[in-house]
């Protein structure tokens, strides 16, 4: 295997693992605060699952990095720009409506990509995905149950869900930002489907679910420009902003239109929300490098 192929595999693994780690961390921030005790436990369990899935994937990363790398160092010992999670995963939890809207969009996307990756030519990755999907089935059921209930009312719940979906949607499309070296992993079928092909699978599925509960106006409101929130310096640099495809309804299906521009999480570009999370997540590790307990 050439070095280029290795680098492309590493990019893919980090995108998958960092998504799970960072979203798992955000989910875990709900522990003790969820509006309903039983659900507090359920959501915390999902957070732990996501972190366990990240660990499985980091287990594949380690042999590629060689001497000196440990699971902790991969998970906690990198600089912010070295994390390859999509921006969706790092966003603040906002309210329960947003958090569940995000979980719904994320786990539907995760279902599409993990299913495809069970057919990966890289046997170890395919095996990990098969295992992960057994637990992801829980997450999907959780997301769909809550989605249906919040959409079904009362009005305030529906409005919180709709507002959350509208906010999360452009970032959720960002989950499908092509990897910088995607061509290499597609060529040897480590990645059986391109990011764009998976987006084309995910979007009609989300569209169908939204239509079922008459929330598809959320898709109509989507504008094809990504995150345009200025950084603290007030500057928006063209290359640093991820532009995501638009959405159109064609022949009774919701489809994407146009492509990505700029750079997002898959190239290490993150939102301001990421820094606080990174400091929380890695603070202890950075204060005591190499410590064990």
């Amino acid at each position: 295997m050439t070095t280029d192929a290795d680098a492309a595999r590493l990019e893919l693994l980090l995108a998958l693992a960092d998504d799970e780690l960072i979203l798992g961390h955000r989910h875990s921030e709900w522990t003790g605060w969820v509006p309903h005790l039983e659900e507090d436990l359920a959501f915390s369990s999902i957070a732990q699952d996501e972190m366990a899935h990240a660990r499985l994937l980091y287990g594949l990363v380690l042999p590629m990095l060689g001497e000196g790398w440990t699971e902790d160092r991969v998970a906690l010992g990198r600089e912010p720009h070295e994390y390859r999670n999509a921006v969706l995963c790092e966003r603040l939890n906002r309210d329960w409506g947003y958090s569940l809207a995000r979980q719904f969009l994320y786990d539907t996307a995760d279902d599409v990509r993990t299913e495809s990756l069970t057919g990966s030519s890289w046997r170890e990755l395919a095996d990990v995905m098969t295992l992960v999907r057994m637990e992801e089935a829980y997450h999907l059921e959780h997301a769909r149950e809550w989605f249906g209930r919040l959409a079904g009312g009362p009005v305030a719940a529906r409005e919180h869900l709709a507002a959350g979906l509208e906010l999360a949607l452009p970032d959720a499309i960002g989950l499908f930002e092509p990897l910088p070296s995607e061509g290499a992993v597609l060529e040897d079928e480590v990645l059986p489907k391109s990011s764009e092909a998976m987006l084309a699978e995910w979007l009609p599925r989300v569209g169908e679910e939204l239509e079922r509960v008459s929330l598809d106006y959320v898709l109509e409101r989507h504008t094809p420009v990504g995150d345009l929130v200025p950084t603290s310096s007030g500057a928006i640099e063209g290359d640093e902003v991820l532009g995501v495809p638009g959405i159109v309804r064609r022949d009774g299906r919701w489809e994407h239109q146009g492509g990505f521009s700029g750079a997002g999480g898959r190239r290490g570009h993150h939102s301001e929300d990421f820094l606080g999370l990174w400091e929380d997540l890695t603070g202890l590790y950075r204060a005591h490098p190499g410590a064990t307990w």
């Binding site: 039983e38 659900e39 436990l41 829980y138």
Partner: peptide
């Protein structure tokens, strides 16, 4: 929802 929460809270 009772089944989902029962599973998540008592059988994890």
């Amino acid at each position: 929802m009772a089944l989902l929460l029962a599973r998540e809270t008592h059988f994890r």
